[in-house]
Amino acid sequence: MDSGILWRVGFLAGVVIGATLLLVLLLRWQPHAELVPADTPPVPSTDQGAEMTLYAANGSQLTKTAATAKTATLPVTDPIVRITENLYEGTRLDGTSFPEGKRNLRFPKDALVRKSLLDACFPDAAVGSVFPASGAAAGGETVTIRGTNFTPGSTVAFGGTAATNVVVVDEKTITCRTPAKAAGAVAVQVTTDAGPFSKANAFTYA
């Protein structure tokens, strides 16, 4: 083989081997850099374990007292109540007596209901009219009171004095006898399960 060719082959082989060794040395001695995610959260100053405490918006650690101070108590206007025994609502067909002769289960024992739902079973009453609208100051006048949502056991008062012989005929009718009062117009008040309800100047004593 021609010596010139051999020289060229040896030269090329030496260049390849030298470049390879240089690349290995560069890779071996390159400084190692550790990549840290940019969103890594700060490490708390104390070890809180698996259950972490709370931190304020400014990053300060909060105690339970400090965290509670950042809350506001909301008023409970319609709490949930538990029914402790079966409660029934009355149902009545036309012609049956008052109060109701038939009852259906409305709230079963241990049911959880809004108090407003329970209160809705006792709607506000209203005093509509009193007949006759006047009577003697000595009292004893039999009158009929018309209105709405009267309940069994309702009481009646004329000008703050209790009436006698009160009979709740039905939800819309009550009969009673007037008490003695001084001459003048007085309010008539009917107190039902839902509370007292009155009409001003509904009866006049003469």
Rank of each mutant, 00 (worst) to 15 (best):
T65D: 11
T65S: 09
A67R: 01
T68L: 15
T68D: 15
K70N: 14
T71F: 10
P75M: 04
T77W: 13
D78C: 03
P79K: 09
I80D: 06
V81M: 05
I83M: 06
I83N: 07
T84Q: 12
E85K: 10
N86W: 00
L87M: 10
L87W: 08
Y88R: 02
Y88V: 02
E89F: 14
E89Y: 14
R92T: 10
D94W: 13
D94R: 14
G95L: 08
T96N: 11
G101S: 12
N104F: 14
F107K: 02
K109V: 15
K109E: 12
A111W: 01
A111S: 08
A111R: 02
L112C: 12
V113N: 05
R114K: 14
D119I: 07
P123L: 09
P123I: 08
P123Q: 05
A125W: 03
A125P: 00
V127C: 01
S129N: 08
V130Y: 02
P132G: 07
P132K: 04
P132E: 06
S134E: 11
G135F: 04
A137Q: 12
A138L: 11
A138C: 08
G140D: 02
V143M: 03
T144R: 00
T144Q: 01
R146H: 09
T148M: 07
N149Q: 07
F150R: 02
F150D: 01
G153Q: 02
S154W: 05
A157Q: 08
F158G: 04
G159L: 05
A163V: 07
T164W: 01
N165E: 14
N165C: 09
V166L: 02
V167Y: 10
V168D: 03
V169Q: 07
V169A: 03
E171T: 15
T173H: 01
T173G: 01
I174T: 00
C176G: 00
C176L: 06
R177N: 15
T178P: 00
P179S: 06
A180T: 09
K181A: 10
K181M: 09
A185T: 10
V186C: 00
V186M: 02
A187E: 06
